[in-house]
Design a protein around this nucleic acid. Sequence first.
DNA 1: CGGTTAGATTGGACGGTACAGTCTAATGCG
DNA 2: CGCATTAGACTGTACCGTCCAATCTAACCG
Lengths: 205, 205
Amino acid sequence: MSPVSPCHGDCAARVLDAALEVFCESGYRSSIDAVAARAQVARQTIYNHFGNKEALFCVALTRAVKEVFTALATDEGDYRARLFNFGMRFRQRVLAPDAINMHKLLISEASRFPELAKSLYESCFVYSRQQMAAVLRNAMDAGVLRNEDPLEAAHILMDMLVSHDHTLLVFGCTAMDPALEEQKVNRALELFLRTYAPAAPERPA
Amino acid sequence: MSPVSPCHGDCAARVLDAALEVFCESGYRSSIDAVAARAQVARQTIYNHFGNKEALFCVALTRAVKEVFTALATDEGDYRARLFNFGMRFRQRVLAPDAINMHKLLISEASRFPELAKSLYESCFVYSRQQMAAVLRNAMDAGVLRNEDPLEAAHILMDMLVSHDHTLLVFGCTAMDPALEEQKVNRALELFLRTYAPAAPERPA
DNA sequence: CGGTTAGATTGGACGGTACAGTCTAATGCG
DNA sequence: CGCATTAGACTGTACCGTCCAATCTAACCG
């Protein structure tokens, strides 16, 4: 039972973990009591640490969402390999059940927390596109890709990588088959590289 | 004031309109009283017609979502014109504020109404892709487009058409500038047609 | 080493609010 | 009269946030 055993230090962290879990499961309409129970903590402890429900929500969600989008790009291999690795990692992170739930949660509460939604969109969604755009810009400079707006290209590639499956998951329709991941990434890359192949210098009349 | 004036017939319709408005504004957590006030109807009238809140929500949302995706394709003009018209109409419908709100609403409540979410995904999202795929299949058969899976091609084109702006709107970041619509559709078509240009029959060695 | 203190934590009670859904009596219309 | 509608009272529930007295821990001090 460990009947009372105060936690002395890790309480806040436990609360944040529990809050993320509970909010992801049942949305913002989860009760503070549910979070407290999940964290095995008294309700009052939550108020001591975070003040109120809104603050708890913002802190928990911000911390979690940012983790999804860090360090997606790598420097190893040729451009094709870099894009493949990025694609695999991106799908893995963004299509994970937790990430899907966070995405739904953020959309649900975008009107209640407009600044939070905007800020997380900027610092995560946009940020991940910029990471990809940097890779693509290099490839364009190297002549491997057609020289166009790299940020636009990043949007297109990343949509090709996840968009359809992401929609499926958000609407709760299917789970992904992990055996098909490489195949899907390669197909997306094939289409993308076809779109952004360097313009043929001259065409045989 | 029209102090009491029972509605005799159009009550149900008024309630459905009001319900859609209110739910889109404040989500499922809107109160029945708010719907009743918007419809200028007694709360009891709503219960007489729809039984409970869940049923009201499902009926109102289903009716509204289906309207967004009907009759997107046209038969006039060449393939390029058809795709352009489809693209313009698609953007207009899917990026409209009401449609964005419904999208957010459906995602928010996907876990509370799994069958509703799945069914609306099927009958609307998938359906619109199939409309587009039919057009693309014709173009492929006619040799105007590279002969590949037309449904996959439809997903890609429709992502190119709206994906980025849709995300922006869902997260409440910006409004669209209507002056740029044609330009955006043409850019999406340009990229798509580049991807799906018929394969060059042979390449100069 | 034992006693004290400050701070974190707990459990529970409590007030206030909001809402779903029911019930009833009254109203107006065909 | 019969029917749809209305206004409002009412019940039950859920939850936020506060308050408080009691408990535990660790650090500090004589």
